[in-house]
């Protein structure tokens, strides 16, 4: 199976663990993700003003690229890219007036009418690969690892692009189940991590992120799984500051869902890239004798 793939900028630098683990897992599952030949930043956030169409151009241009390559479907990993592409796609499919204005402006590109379907990787795993297939190919199940299922905003809101029906956590729950981990539901599964306010109002964003970590820990989670590099930054990379300022008492391991997939499939270090995660993430796997090959030698 071959499918068009939109990576997003952050996956090429700060979130290599998200991408590397996905590509290696797909290879192991017999799926070839074909990266778009040309692509630009998706814009990360959807513009919400009725008269502001120029900010939809970036994601639409990417969808035109997918169409040019003959794809009727494009798979994304980053939650923000997914949200931005999917919402722009709905405008191009459903809003005749806006579609015409945007197509007229982009006169150097083919006209686009929403021909390409934007699919998040989790949906792709469930619907195209199948959780049963994954379960059958799992070599080292992540037995006994209690993982909080964190969706954040952009996989769940607004409803017309949510990766599963409102309030549902079945997708991540079933995914974790397939890789042998123990899913932990918690109240803040859909709470925003503070997002881009980490730049403008870092103190506020860190407070919100600390609350999410605290909530997950109190629900009995030993780790948290997510799909967005900005959530990862606020929830994982900022943990040092949070501990120092007393906002949380101890670190909570944070994993990209693709890393847990790669580890369960028995893939090695280069695939799982746990070297790019926080120390405590490696420690929890070691302490539970999980993904031994993938964490061997990582200090």
């Amino acid at each position: 199976m071959k499918v068009a793939y939109y990576p997003g900028c952050t996956l090429k630098t700060k979130a290599k663990n998200l991408e590397d683990a996905a590509l290696a897992s797909m290879k192991a599952l017999g799926v070839e993700l074909e990266e778009l030949n040309r692509w630009n930043c998706c814009g990360a956030v959807h513009s919400l003003a009725d008269d502001d169409l120029i900010h939809h151009v970036a994601p639409v241009r990417d969808l035109v690229r997918a169409m040019e390559q003959g794809s009727d479907k494009v798979v994304t990993l980053c939650s923000m890219c997914y949200n931005s592409l999917a919402r722009a796609n709905l405008i191009m499919r459903d809003d005749e007036v806006k579609r015409k204005t945007i197509n007229d402006f982009m006169d150097e590109e083919e006209d686009y009418h929403g021909e390409v379907e934007v699919v998040h990787f989790l949906n792709f795993l469930r619907d195209e690969v199948g959780f049963d297939t994954i379960r059958a190919k799992v070599k080292y199940p992540l037995n006994g690892l209690k993982v909080a299922t964190y969706y954040g905003c952009t996989l769940a809101r607004p409803r017309n692009v949510a990766i599963e029906p409102p309030g549902g956590t079945r997708l991540m729950t079933d995914f974790l189940d397939a890789v042998g981990a123990t899913p932990v539901k918690f109240a803040d599964a859909f709470t925003c991590c503070g997002s881009y306010q980490i730049i403008a109002n870092p103190e506020n964003a860190v407070n919100v992120a600390a609350g999410i970590l605290d909530c997950a820990a109190k629900a009995g989670a030993e780790a948290l799984v997510l799909s967005c590099p900005l959530c990862e930054f606020n929830l994982a990379k900022k943990q040092g500051d949070m501990i120092q300022s007393g906002k949380i008492s101890k670190g909570l391991p944070i994993f990209y869902f693709t890393q847990l997939l790669a580890a369960a499939l028995g893939l090695g270090k280069e695939a799982c890239r746990f070297d790019l995660n926080d120390k405590c993430s490696v420690e929890i796997l070691k302490s539970k004798n999980l993904a031994m090959e993938a964490v061997a030698g990582i200090a």
Binding site: C9, T13, A15, C41, A44, I199, C228, L230
Partner: peptide, 25 residues
């Protein structure tokens, strides 16, 4: 927020999607 006044260290550590979304909003 003023992009030109952001400390280099902050820009270096931020994921691109943080920069893009912050500047857009």
């Amino acid at each position: 927020v003023e992009p030109s006044k952001m400390p280099a260290e902050t820009v270096k550590e931020m994921p691109q999607i943080a920069m893009v979304s912050c500047f857009r909003k």
